[in-house]
Design a protein around this nucleic acid. Structure first.
Lengths: 330, 330
DNA sequence: GCGGACTACTAAATCGAATAAGTGCAGTCT
DNA sequence: AGACTGCACTTATTCGATTTAGTAGTCCGC
């Protein structure tokens, strides 16, 4: 009754190795050379293979249950068909990020690649990884936030442009609710989120500007329950006109909620609170947390193709809907 | 300003390939054959290499920054040095699981292997993975719960035995608080957690039995906020003597808290609630959630060695402490 | 009726490590 | 002195794919 199910491949190669179907086996079954099998199965352009032969080969491969050996491929091609997603220390609780990963995974699978996730951070780790697994690409969700070369043109599946729209949805919900002086809550002591915070803050400023409102004063939460209460208290003293707070994420929003409770500030009566990237716990607190659920699947799909250097594909310039999950807090 | 930092290895090979340091390069630099380099770097037993040569080889390898090519190794040996952890659809918010993964990762790194996490489930996926990455082992956190052969002897780093102790800590906290009739809250509609639930319930029953108390009546939560309220209401009606509830995890505990609030049941006055595997949101709700924080690092370390077929190593039969994070709810 | 182009393939090299099977030489035993 | 053993290596093969460089055979024009 163990927690883990172990499927070990004995390095000694017991029966496993002898069972493996190789390209050679397929070539024999189809009565052609091994090279021909490779040409057919990879649809190599420029090679002329008769339709009948193609058929025989494909049939043989299917019959035998042939699967190309990733190691051999990687050795020959220089990189494996693995794509690494590095999520070191980032929050991955939100539904948005989960959907993003799901879509990325599905699309990569469709393109005959495999997404694997790495939790370790550090540049040395990336070096190790390059040597050990030679991934086709590394998607680093962490590094970007601390990246000095902010303007580097890097594939992101359109996430960044989407972020602007999503931030706007969050703010607009508060404005539609009649709020005109809005604050923004950012996480404390999370250096890996610093750049994301700056980005979101910038978009928030623009959104409010477009609506003829002043940019949001900011509030930092996350140092601890007591510190949070003090921080919110100070913030309200300094900005008494603020009647609503938009948070960077649900965790930060929950902290605002907790601090408000401690200060006896009625939510949403005195202070409306809205989160971002609905993380699930929002419906379990009181008052329940209003949040923004973002559809990031389209980004994931686009990123998969970008990462492999493929054209955008059939995925049209999809709109990226963000919907407000309306609960009690705003 | 993208979300992702992309480090692509061009399949075309560009400059990267020419830059790679191979064993051949090392052998030339050290003035020996490539085979000798392999013998030295792998400490091949049975091979007699003079200390001076060993030194020259090691020095050359270090100077050139040699890193063995994972693909070549995998091709030759039949399996790569990658260990896959499959966490498909399981909750991974708890601090315990995070610490478990961290320790597993660190120990595997120490043993020159690499832990990569896979989110997809399904047997077909495992087949794909075997062909594409040929992992040395697959740790499936998911399958185990549905596994029919419950008694299979599989490496788990001692997790299972620990679970019993941890469950006891959770229950004992309630008993120490004066509670004698205790219920257990289990998640609803999470088939992947069914077996874990059964396991925990069994341990709970034993713990209570040892203390001379009756086994816990169970309560199912998670179908939805309204359903949860009804479920708790029914439960209290049926078991009015129950004054405390131990939950399978923090998420389930939060649901009990929310339902209690909806029913105006004072917590911990009428009903004490304790979670498991402290997931972080517990301190942000009101009343704040008491939970059990488990130290799973030792399990991770042991599992790493088990999985690679190594002896237990220096890691002594470590005790696995579980500590109650005492907050307001119990 | 012969060179050239095209078709439909095959043979062999290659990627980088691990390893089985030698090779030359010094020392030992009988 | 010749066989034998052990040491310190080297040579060459292997893993399973991709890819380059062929090689027969056919058709086509002149």
């Amino acid at each position: 009754m163990p927690l883990t199910r172990l499927t070990a491949n004995t390095p000694e190669g017991g029966t496993v190795k002898s069972t493996r179907v190789t390209m050679k086996d397929v070539s024999v079954a189809a009565g052609v050379s091994q090279a021909t099998v490779s040409f057919v199965l990879n649809d190599k352009p420029g090679e002329t293979i008769s339709p009948e032969t193609r058929d025989r080969v494909r049939r043989a491969a299917a019959d035998l249950g042939y699967r190309p050996n990733g190691a051999a491929r990687a050795l020959r091609e220089g990189t494996s068909r693995i794509v690494i997603l590095n999520v070191a220390r980032l929050p991955h609780g939100g539904t948005g990020l989960a959907a993003f990963i799901d879509a990325l995974d599905a699309e990569l699978e469709h393109l005959d690649h495999m997404l694997l996730v790495r939790y370790r951070a550090g540049s040395d780790d990336i070096e190790r990884m390059t040597a050990m697994v030679a991934p086709r690409a590394v998607l680093d969700l962490d590094r970007i936030y601390n990246s000095p070369d902010a303007e580097a043109e890097v594939a992101d599946g359109g996430w960044t442009e989407g972020l602007a729209a999503h931030t706007a949805v969050q703010l607009r919900h508060l404005v539609d609710g009649g709020h005109t002086t809005i604050g923004m809550a950012l996480p404390d002591g999370r250096p890996e989120l610093e750049r994301l915070a700056a980005l979101r803050l910038d978009y928030a400023r623009r959104t409010l500007g477009d609506l003829g409102l002043e940019g949001p004063p900011t509030l930092t939460m996350g140092a601890g329950v007591d510190e949070d209460r003090t921080a919110l208290s100070d913030f309200i003293d300094r900005h008494p006109a603020v009647t609503a707070i938009a948070a960077l994420d649900d965790d930060t929003a929950l902290r605002v909620l907790a601090a408000s409770r401690a200060l006896d500030l009625p939510v949403p009566g005195r202070l409306a609170v809205i989160g971002f990237d609905d993380a699930g716990a929002g419906e379990l607190v009181s008052p329940s947390l209003t949040s923004v659920r973002i559809d990031t699947a389209a980004f994931g799909r686009r990123l998969a193709r970008q990462v492999l250097g493929l054209p955008e594909g059939d995925a049209a310039p999809t709109p990226s809907p963000a919907t407000v999950i309306r609960r009690r807090s705003a």
